[in-house]
Amino acid sequence: MLAFILRRLGQSVLVMLVVAFIAFMVFRYVGDPVVSMVGQDATTGDIEQLRTRLGLNDPFYVQFVRFVGNALQGQFGISYRLQQPVSQLILERLPATIELAFASALIALVFGVVLGIYTALKPRSFSSAVIMTISLVGVSLPTFLIGIGLIYLFAVELKVLPSFGRGQVVQLGWWRTGLLTESGWRSLILPAITLSLFQLTLIMRLVRAEMLEVMRTDYIRFARARGLSQRAINFGHALRNTLVPVITIAGLQLGSVIAFAIITETVFQWPGVGSLFVNSVQVVDVPVMAAYLVFVALVFVVINLIVDILYFIVDPRLRDGARTGR
């Protein structure tokens, strides 16, 4: 057990390093931060001087080693764009993203499971076909278009929901929450729906597929033969067997919801880490970009690690880190 966890931890660290390495290699191609830092009046000499001072003229492995060295001490430097410590910027923005991610994950999970069960229990019905089709429309449009469409409908035409931002926030220690005010909740609705659509479709289809599979198994047939009520079979047996892989996937998806939030946050001016990242990319704010990527990788690695350990505990046969249902 301990050996397994240690090995997976080691692998996780390796993953993080690879992520940081790739990310760093890429930054030099995204553009030149210095040009947007110095302004129009700077001379060629000024630009070159600042570049040297920031260490951007060093070979990239030198920059990388320096970055990893600083990151290990929790130092991500200051943002080129906002001139504030990067770790502070990310921590400030994190609550907004987490609240958005959880809200949309919740929507996706609840509606996904309910609709998935429904379409599985009535596979040939007309309403199932309609639900399956409509759910696809949601993933057939780019997120930015859905977001702007929702804003147009609910904020501009109907004027029932705010068009942008997070509403009024309340400070709880370092955590800035929008969940304690009415305007906060109202502001959360549109972005959360926008962000959830993709996962909702995914979960719904997964539940449906798993449920259909389980319903065909001998075990359910046997239950039916025993004369158990259809209801007891559906919810007592079939659903329970369905939910294990579903929850696994949903957990893994939580990480990607945070990462997916980039576009949604930009469209809704949601003050989370995703919009921070997009703003940073535009001016090549390398310290923020690097820290963000490492942060996202960390979230995934942690979630993966937890899932692996849970699997290990649940099913000791699955040594070697082998996972099923993924």
């Binding site: 904020a155 501009v156 068009s163 942008f164 469209v267």
Partner: peptide
């Protein structure tokens, strides 16, 4: 003072009275 990056959202914010 409220920065809104997306142009369409910015216009929507004005039209919706935000």
């Amino acid at each position: 003072y409220l920065p809104i990056a997306d142009a369409a959202t910015r216009v929507a914010a004005l039209l919706s009275g935000d």
